[in-house]
Design a protein around this nucleic acid. Structure first.
Lengths: 189, 189
DNA sequence: CGTTACATGTAATATGTTACATGATTCC
DNA sequence: GGAATCATGTAACATATTACATGTAACG
């Protein structure tokens, strides 16, 4: 039940609405966890029912009203309990890896299309993370920020996200290089 | 439905039993996908029902009989179809990231325990992948193997697995360094 | 004689995804 | 006038995890 804790962690620094949370957990933005809007709303409802977050109505003009949520004392306790238990390591579960695993029996040109797409996606996402890091640092250089900044947690997770996508990008590039070289070698023979 | 394709990809090079597949997809070994034994057996049953794999009974002495599976022509077609569709990019979904996201509100000592565990796990898994890569290369150096070796697919996915765990290890190390430096800085003040 | 490996599942529960639903407002 | 953003869900379906079940044989 880690989405539960991911939502709590996201709400630690600031009050957010369900909608803002769905944005934070959406495909392009989430630096440390991912979830669909429906899941976020459902989890928020459960968290409120269990008293781990508290919502407060905010009336707005010109746009629909919304509810802002914050973590309760009980919610913080829940997070502390979560942090004190061993974390399950994650596995890579990427469609593209399955496709490359079968590379020797598939058409290289088709795979190169997939790799090109993933390369572009990884590059874009890494750039997005890099930008967010820059904003979090503000004027400080990284070492200074990490030593004295408030809230380094989100920074550290965002950095992992950036490096993950950089690694994806580099891997795509290397695989494409290999596939192309093998095509060329096969043509010569 | 990517487990389906992961199983097909795993069976491309060699006939395997359900049990061998469960080993390949188990926590410590899978380089490109992960699944529990129950899932693997269920998926094999479906694949056989749909004619994408064919099983053959092998009678054994001294241990239970088993069934070896191979991919059918239809199965290869299914994989080709899969490779021709855009792959969904994966997200990081790691408990430890959630815990570090909340780092500023949690006890650093507790987090360092989690990071130490994950560091050791990542190191061990990276070493395991490295060993498998070495075996796949045989006597050849990497560039030579990638250019002329048969079956580079599994090699390339295994390399991604190794680099993923190396990145996890390095991130754990960096985060611990930051947390320790901040503890020291806080004590001084 | 207890543990690990071999070998294969069923059943219940939890989690995640897809499709559908509603309605106002702002931007182009 | 149509698309995108704000705002919040329900319902159906697919996938993954956990618990349970069974039996042989090799290893120490």
């Amino acid at each position: 039940m880690a989405l539960r804790h991911a939502v709590l962690a996201a709400l630690l620094d600031e009050e957010l609405s369900g909608y803002q949370l769905t944005k934070a957990f959406a495909a392009g933005v989430a630096n440390f966890w991912h979830a669909k809007p429906q899941q976020v709303y459902a989890e928020l409802a459960r968290l409120e029912r269990d008293g781990l977050v508290a919502g407060r109505e905010v009336v707005q003009e010109g746009r629909p009203d919304k509810r802002l949520f914050r973590v309760t004392g009980k919610g913080l306790g829940e997070l502390e309990g979560f942090a004190s238990t061993a974390a399950k390591p994650a596995f890579l579960r990427e469609d593209l890896l399955v496709q490359v695993q079968a590379a020797d029996r598939l058409d290289a040109a088709v795979l190169i299309e997939r790799l090109t797409e993933r390369y572009a996606f990884a590059e874009a996402k890494a750039a997005l993370f890099e930008e967010r890091l820059r904003r979090m640092r503000g004027g400080l250089d990284e070492a200074e920020f990490l030593l004295r900044g408030a809230r380094v947690g989100p920074y550290l997770t965002c950095r992992r996200g950036r490096d993950f996508e950089r690694a994806n990008r580099d891997w795509c590039r290397d695989v494409m290089e290999v596939l192309r070289a093998r095509q060329a070698a096969a043509e010569e023979a």
